[in-house]
Design a protein around this nucleic acid. Structure first.
Lengths: 256, 256
DNA sequence: AAGGCTTAGTGTCAATCGAACACTTGAAAA
DNA sequence: TTTTCAAGTGTTCGATTGACACTAAGCCTT
């Protein structure tokens, strides 16, 4: 059980990939299968997609590579949020069983740099390949025990997302190109875990200028059709300031 | 000049240590001396204090160790803010000259996890030891070219500090136990790089409840003596919420 | 065709907050 | 006693927040 002290730590990246479907925020997790010495059956459990960082790439590139290998997508919102490096990260038995199978130095300590990715989950097509023993979207409320310290990392990502979403207009990354005001509000409510007032929400969104109304409305719905909006992307990517006031009702701060 | 691709990346921590004295925000930097092959004189330049992470410590512990070795202080505000891992970080000639002298694998790529520390600079007594070839407090406006990517890291720390200071009551870490309202305002103005209105500032600070007035006032000053205040530390460390609204005039957001 | 169902969409008011603004107070020094 | 210097103090106006309830539009059912 001891970790060899002579080995240098290795560095990996792990991606906490958020998606939003059926009114829930979900994480894209991969399935790992390891032989169980006792039962002769395979055990399986979930983990965040990740990989060791290669010598010729920087951290952002490594994270983008992991994301692409799993989902086939590039140009996705992907942001580093924290490094994790507890020496005890890899002491669980099934983690060690898995490492035996895939790493040259299964005992080496690994420091991981965690990224969060926001993607429109309908765009994802799981790629056959190293990760593809199975990948699933699990609702954030139903995440089981994961590999290593991946539960802690996921929690950290969710916290980071909650903060970021009130400072930068990034929630849109989780929605399709066109969306209704209700879609957007539901997304915010899901991320922030509280209800928001419909009228205040619309007012704030429209006044802030982050979205633009389309002429188009929904078709074939059995109630009043909702107008579609688009995110005013260029305003933020090219504008002078990557900032807007997206704080929601009841958020806390210290000076104004 | 090539970086050996077979070596695993190593992991270090670097500390961006902020202090505040003579109305300026300063960084505590260490001096490095390397022989110059041409002139036969030694070249010297500044760097952030940092060290490789040991196998038996986590990242926070490594950063705390670096801070303690340099300043003798423990229990200091110390917060991870970003990992840096560009493969080209260590290609400058003088950086490589220094690595030759101190590292087993001078060619190994190093990923660094950067921390920012906030300390009351008068408490610091530079410790004799590995760092003590010289350490100086340099004003943030007068930082020369540093080792590796340490300029980039310092910039990142300053940005992170500017954001954090408006969300969490951490500026107090830079002041002595007792301080005047003007001390505090000058500090905020220095960090945020803009002037604040005196009356609005006092009102916000007092209403927020983060500070408490002492009965005591200044003595021996040649003008109206200022009242002393203390940071209401337990309110935030033990309270239900580590948050207060410390946003200052003219800051930007997206929803409220 | 009428009525019901469901979600979209809309306005006002009161309270609070933000930003701008100038004079008086207290102590030491001259 | 007067001067000098920073501390300390209130008000007003406009903008923003947050609370709150009804009508509109389309489809479905009967």
């Amino acid at each position: 059980m001891s970790i060899s002290p002579s080995l240098n730590p290795h560095v990996s990246v792990d991606c906490v990939i958020f998606g939003f479907s059926k009114e829930t925020l979900r994480l894209l997790l991969i399935k790992r299968t390891v032989p169980n010495a006792l039962t002769e059956l395979d055990d399986s459990y979930y983990a965040l997609p990740g990989d060791l960082v290669r010598d010729n790439e920087n951290l952002d590139e490594a994270a983008a590579r992991v994301l692409k290998e799993l989902t086939g997508l590039t140009g996705i919102f992907l942001q580093q949020f924290q490094a994790f490096g507890d020496p005890l990260r890899i002491t669980k038995a099934k983690d060690r069983a898995w490492l035996q199978g895939v790493r040259q130095d299964p005992d080496a300590r690994v420091i991981t740099v965690a990224y969060m990715a926001l993607i429109e989950s309908s765009k994802v097509e799981i790629q056959p390949g190293s990760f593809s023993k199975g990948a699933v979207w699990l609702p954030i409320g139903e995440i089981p025990e994961l590999a290593f310290d991946h539960n802690e990392i996921s929690e950290g990502a969710l916290m980071a997302l909650r903060e970021k979403v009130q400072i930068q207009p990034i929630a849109f990354e989780l929605l399709p190109e066109k969306f209704t005001m209700s879609d957007l509000q539901t997304l915010y409510e899901t991320i922030l875990q509280r209800d928001l007032d419909k009228r205040n929400f619309r007012r704030k969104m429209l006044n802030s200028g982050v979205i633009a109304a389309l002429p188009e409305k929904q078709h074939g719905v059995s109630n009043k059709p909702a107008r579609y909006y688009v995110f005013n992307r260029n305003l933020f990517e090219n504008g002078p300031m990557g900032f807007v006031n997206l704080k929601m009702e009841g958020s806390f701060t210290l000076f104004n």
